[in-house]
């Protein structure tokens, strides 16, 4: 139990996927302009990330390894992620059209979110069990959501700041992300 808690905190704060491991930066910079869309994007990603990490784990250990096809892991994982995204879109559309409208254009973007593939590959590299993979994925996804939402709030404030012309837009966003990342360094050492 304690081990699972450590994995969760590690993925959520200490090795935050966006700020310490540089995964999922495209949506982090691209979708964080608005607070509400950041929240929606975060939850859609959480769902897809957890589901695809679990499916990747199962398919690697129970299909690819017995067949001796371990080197096909990247191709398999990409197909799994794309199908999970496709399935989520269909599911959301039939269950809640309103949510689908809100998430609409963000769902397909998750396919090219490297954090999703990154979690699957990292969990594999660390040799985690199924339960550990699930906890790791949830921690990573919540960490991604938290940082995305915090950063969206920061950028709404930046809109009103007097930024030099050359730094408007992406450059100042990157520098403020650096400062946020500096703050997250404070979590290093938490949970050993």
């Amino acid at each position: 139990m304690q081990e699972l808690a450590l994995i969760l905190v590690g993925a959520l704060l200490v090795n935050n996927f966006v700020l310490a491991q540089f995964l999922g930066l495209c949506p982090f910079i691209g979708v964080s302009g608005n607070y509400d869309t950041a929240v929606s994007m975060g939850f859609a990603t959480t769902f897809v990330l957890t589901l695809s990490a679990c499916l990747s784990h199962v398919s690697y250990h129970y299909v690819l390894v017995p067949l001796g096809l371990g080197y096909l892991n990247i191709i398999t994982f990409v197909v799994i992620i794309a199908s999970v995204v496709q399935f989520t879109e269909l599911f959301v559309r039939s269950v809640s059209p309103l949510l689908h409208q809100a998430l609409g254009i963000y769902l397909p973007l998750i396919t090219t979110n490297c954090a999703v593939l990154g979690v699957a590959l990292l969990a594999l590299g660390q040799g985690l069990t199924f339960l550990q993979t699930m906890v790791y994925a949830i921690g990573a996804a919540l960490g991604f959501t938290a940082v995305l939402v915090v950063f969206a709030a920061m950028r709404e404030r930046l809109e009103h700041a007097d930024v030099p012309a050359a730094f408007q837009g992406a450059p100042i966003a990157l520098v403020s992300a650096g400062i946020l990342s500096l703050a997250f360094l404070g979590f290093a050492g938490l949970g050993g």
Binding site: L19, A20, Q21, F22, F167, A170, P171, I172, A173, L174, V175, A177, G178, I179, S181, L182, L185
Partner: peptide, 9 residues
Amino acid sequence: PPGAFIVAG
């Protein structure tokens, strides 16, 4: 990591 963001920015 913060250095990467700041240098790139």
